[in-house]
């Protein structure tokens, strides 16, 4: 009996494999080919400005990359950017979700308004922030500062990374809010009332009931945001172009600089591979964490 079943499985396996084949093939082409090409280029001497320099470079590009202080700066910037935006959006999103869960007049409109920044293109929102909010002479923020008698801040030159963090957080806060608001709506009213009867005030309810309920949604927000935040590009390109110096250059922007400004495809590919590895390390931890969360 075991035999027949095993045999049956083989046949079934073959049959299902043939059904899976198109999808698997497409995925392979889509993913493995570019990845393989990137790895291949990263092992080549390949600079568009020096077409005569070709051939296998071995780990030359990587050696170069890892000894380049720009890589470490970019990596630091990436982590700082991702970490800060995550912290701001998760904390802010949770608090806003709790706020928007309360009954107040105009709640529906307020919710839509709060979520709308997410639908603005990154380039557009970066331009708006650059030219209308943070502009040193005619931005809203400097007008505000002046009306309080404070000196205007030249955001992008004196606080470049902070400015980027603010812009990106503004874009991603609505996403966190959207997910967490949906999650908070599934919180059982009876549970909150039971807690009230047990003597819990608003703060205790938040920490003992709401937050544990949101744990899963928060880990989902963190994972999804992380994937997108690791590759932030448009906001930097539009506002600071990675500068001043390397102050706002993250990994994605560094690769761009090397491939398209320095025309060094080999180096850029090596940077790409490093970025992939970094993303995978992060993803492994995250997936573990989320999986554990989803289990419990």
């Amino acid at each position: 009996m075991t035999k027949t079943r095993a045999a049956g499985r083989t046949v079934g396996g073959l049959r299902t494999l043939s059904l899976q084949a198109p999808a698997v093939t497409l995925l392979l082409l889509w993913m493995i080919v570019p990845l393989a090409m990137t790895v291949w280029f990263s092992l080549q001497r390949y600079n568009l400005l020096m077409p005569e320099m070709t051939g296998f470079a071995g780990l030359e590009n990587y050696r170069y990359l890892f000894t380049d202080p720009a890589l470490w700066t970019a990596m630091g910037n990436t982590l700082l950017l991702v970490g800060s935006v995550l912290a701001i959006t998760v904390v802010g999103g949770t608090l806003l979700a709790v706020l928007f869960q309360q009954e107040f007049p105009g709640r529906g409109v307020a919710r839509v308004l709060a979520i709308s920044p997410f639908f603005v293109m990154p380039t557009v929102s970066a331009l708006v922030w650059k030219n209308m909010m943070m502009h040193p002479s005619n931005g809203v923020l400097s007008w505000l500062a002046e009306s309080f008698g404070l000196p205007a801040v030249d955001w992008f030159s004196s606080l470049p990374l902070t400015s980027i963090i603010i812009i990106v957080s503004w874009q991603w806060l609505p996403f966190a809010l959207l997910i967490l608001l949906t999650a908070i709506q599934s919180l059982d009213d009876d549970q909150v009332e039971a807690a009230r009867m047990d003597g819990a005030g608003p703060v205790a309810i938040f920490f003992f009931i709401t937050l544990p309920h949101l744990k899963r949604a928060i880990s989902v927000v963190i994972m999804i945001e992380m994937i997108f935040l690791l590759t932030i590009f448009a906001e930097i390109f539009v506002t600071t172009s990675g500068g001043p110096g390397l102050a706002t250059t993250n990994l994605a922007f560094l690769i761009y600089i090397q491939a398209l400004l320095d025309f060094d495809v080999g180096m850029a590919s090596a940077g790409g591979v490093v970025a992939v590895i970094l993303a995978n390390i992060v993803a492994i931890f995250l997936v573990r964490m989320v999986a554990k969360n989803l289990e419990s």
């Binding site: 009876d190 549970q191 003597g199 309920h213």
Partner: peptide, 20 residues
């Protein structure tokens, strides 16, 4: 007077246990 200070306890239809 608030629900916690009335000297009452309530059992809900949905039980309303804290799942975590």
């Amino acid at each position: 007077i608030g629900p916690a200070d009335r000297g009452l306890a309530m059992v809900f239809q949905s039980y309303a246990l804290y799942p975590h």
